[in-house]
Write a protein that binds this DNA or RNA. Structure first.
Lengths: 218, 218
DNA sequence: ACCGTAACATACGGTAGCGTACTGAAAGGC
DNA sequence: GCCTTTCAGTACGCTACCGTATGTTACGGT
């Protein structure tokens, strides 16, 4: 039993990965047993050994996705001490993976399904929460951090959407780099906006520090 | 014939409206003849008198939606002379109708379908274009207007998305009003960026100038 | 009173996909 | 060498939905 679990869970995970692929390109409805089996070169007989039914596959795929989108994503930037750079990293990550973006949009579109909706809600909440914490680490009070993090999150979700729905209109190449910088400058104020609690830091100095950061661009 | 057309097209439009309702709550897949007929209290026999097939219904619904989302929306704010107020109106409209938001998201999710994708693209392009024009009317040069209007549009699309996917996290009530004002202040610079300095640096000034703007208080 | 037609109903065949029951084959323990 | 376990294939019934063919009703014109 214990050793066979490895083999079984491997194959099951392959099914789940294939399900995620199907979701990314065709939405939740595209996760159908027979087409997936065809794509994997087997028949339903295999599927119903690994999973009790289609719902179980969807659940497994959602679990996989949730891990990818929360734990992995956050672990990836956790070692960045500077909160500003941490947020920049999150933004870059959000604009990097095309598949991840499409997957999010596909799952969000299917959030009427209670199982999907719950996961989407948890993922959104966790990402928003982590963003909010990062904004607080910038020196914002709780309230401002909540507003700004929501603002920033909405913008980047919206970017995915616009990029998919109106690719012709969406900036690309050099223009995207400018667009990206504009968003960073606008959405990550490096000086606390509520005058109350923070030590006044040199705004000019901080802004200049942001510009000579030339790294990749999606 | 001429008088019977009115009756016929009326009924056909009812079908199209019902199709849009179904889309808003269940996506494109929810536009199915038999369930729709049940919901309307008739049978398929009626449907196949008005439309040749399901695709024709989808096309009619899309046409209706496109009119709603472009012409009507723009006509609604066309009489506002102040470009600032015009943009505010557009934003308010975007955040007002829950159904319209869900409809957009549902159709965008189904934009793999070429018929749907084309309409979504046209609607997005037209709205973005109108927004860009409004930003130009604020005094921005073409380039900045393009970046800022894309930015603003993405944010409001993202707001719809977040509002649907993580309703618990999305600001509401008093907090939403603050959130809304923050977005307006940030996304609609009231000081014209003169065409003279189109460099990205000018945008930084913009952000810094937005803060001491005495006109609104959160 | 009669007919034509607009509007809807009924009945049917066809397909896609879900799930089940059963069969088949390879692999490793005994 | 057998036999259980693991994994996959085949065959079938079931449901939802599409589309078609045909039946039924109401009504306006003549």
């Amino acid at each position: 039993m214990p050793d066979s679990i490895a083999k079984q869970s491997l194959s099951a995970e392959q099914w789940a990965e294939a399900a995620l692929d199907a979701m990314a390109s065709g939405g939740l409805e595209a996760v159908s047993v027979e087409p997936l089996a065809r794509r994997l070169g087997v028949t339903k007989g295999s599927f119903y050994w690994h999973f009790s039914n289609r719902d179980a596959l969807v659940r497994a795929a959602l679990e996989l996705w949730e891990r990818h989108e929360t734990i992995d994503a956050i672990v990836n930037v956790r070692d960045e001490p500077d909160p500003y750079e941490r947020i920049v990293k999150l933004f870059k990550r959000a604009n990097t993976s095309h598949r991840a973006g499409r997957l999010y949009l596909a799952l969000a579109a299917a959030s009427d399904d209670p199982a999907v909706g719950a996961v989407v809600q948890r993922v959104s909440a966790q990402r928003l929460d982590y963003l909010r914490q990062s904004y607080e680490a910038l020196g914002m009070d709780q309230h401002d951090a909540r507003l700004w993090s929501t603002f920033a999150y909405a913008t980047f979700i919206g970017n995915q959407q616009v990029h998919r729905d109106a690719p012709e209109q969406f900036p690309s190449g050099v223009e995207f780099r400018e667009y990206f910088k504009l968003m960073l400058r606008t959405l990550i104020p490096r000086t606390p906006l509520s005058a109350a609690n923070a030590e006044p830091v040199s705004v000019v100095h901080l802004h200049e520090r942001a510009r000579p950061d030339p790294r990749q661009d999606p």
